[in-house]
Simulated assay, not measured.
Amino acid sequence: MAKNKNTDVPINGLYDEEGKIFTEDAEGTPEGTEAEVVEEETEVSLSQEELYALCRESVCPECDVHKEAEGIRLRALADAENLKKRLLRENEEMKKYAGESVLADLLPVLDNLDLALAHTGGLDDACKNFVIGVDMTRKIFLDAVKGHGLEAVQAAVGAEFDPEVHEAVGTVDQSELGDNQIAQVVQGGYILKGRLLRPAKVMVNKA
């Protein structure tokens, strides 16, 4: 009688396809196999500007991209500084000449006072006090506008004509005056804080 062969099967064991016995590890994964780990891919979306920024931060100083980025940065800083200086300068100039339009509107008052004083010749004694009052009013008014930086342009008969502050409205021929000298002041001129507000209108002698 043939003997039956008893095949011992380990209690905790398994056979693989080749009939070899392998055991399970502590985590329940059969030995001899590799655990496959699948990592989820994370999709990152960056704008073109962000990519350039990352590139500029990562490249070496000698890279052309770095040099270009540094040049752009320096130009931006220079432009910002120039803009700041220009705005400050414009702000200061605006404050300095804030009353220019008001003072320009007051100039006809001075013109009329000057005109009144220019025609005081031959008046009787009864009008002298009136003339003195007009002259005092003119001086007070001129002192008031001087407090705001307004000054009269120097223009007198016999003075040299200066095209920077004088405006020639005509010419005359007077032998007692030299060439290019002022023969008559038609209208006074004024300067506001170093800037010409209105030139003095004069007649110029041409010998």
Rank of each mutant, 00 (worst) to 15 (best):
K206T: 05
K5P: 03
N205T: 00
K84N: 12
R89V: 13
L196H: 02
D125M: 00
N6Q: 14
P61R: 10
A69Q: 14
G188Y: 00
D143G: 01
E93S: 14
G28I: 02
P61E: 12
K193C: 04
Y190N: 00
F130V: 15
A183F: 06
Q174R: 11
V202N: 01
V202H: 00
E57F: 10
C60R: 15
L197W: 04
G149W: 08
A159V: 07
A98D: 07
E164G: 08
R86L: 12
D173E: 14
L87I: 11
G188I: 01
K67Q: 10
V172N: 07
L103R: 02
T120V: 11
N4G: 08
K20H: 09
D125G: 04
L115Q: 11
A155R: 05
A155D: 11
K96H: 14
T7Y: 13
G28W: 04
L88M: 12
N129V: 13
S175T: 08
N4C: 05
E92L: 14
V165H: 01
T23I: 12
C127N: 01
A116Q: 08
E34I: 13
V9H: 06
I140Y: 07
L51H: 03
E57N: 12
L87A: 11
T171F: 09
V202G: 02
E62Q: 11
D8P: 00
I182S: 03
D162V: 10
I182T: 05
G147S: 02
G19Q: 02
D16N: 14
A159G: 04
D125Q: 05
N129R: 08
P61S: 13
M136T: 09
E167G: 02
K146M: 11
L197T: 00
E164Q: 10
A53C: 00
V59C: 12
S45P: 01
V65K: 11
L117C: 05
V44R: 02
N6M: 14
V172P: 03
R56W: 13
L54P: 01
E17S: 07
L107N: 03
E151T: 12
E167V: 03
E57H: 13
V165A: 01
L115S: 11
G71Q: 13
L106F: 08
E24R: 14
G133P: 02
G189E: 01
G170K: 02
K193N: 05
M94E: 15
A2D: 13
D114I: 08
G194Y: 09
N112H: 10
A53M: 11
K139D: 09
E151D: 11
R75Y: 09
I182N: 00
E151C: 01
P108I: 01
K96C: 13
L177D: 04
T120C: 14
F161Y: 15
Y52Q: 13
E18T: 07
E24G: 03
I21T: 04
L115N: 12
N82S: 14
P10A: 15
G133Q: 15
P30M: 06
D173L: 08
Y15E: 05
I72D: 07
Q184T: 13
A2Y: 10
V59S: 06
V9S: 06
N4M: 13
V102Y: 15
E167L: 15
E27S: 06
Y15F: 15
L142M: 09
A76E: 11
G178A: 04
V172L: 05
E24A: 05
M1F: 07
S175R: 05
L14D: 04
R86C: 03
L83V: 04
A35F: 02
I191K: 06
L113N: 01
V185N: 03
R89Q: 14
G133W: 02
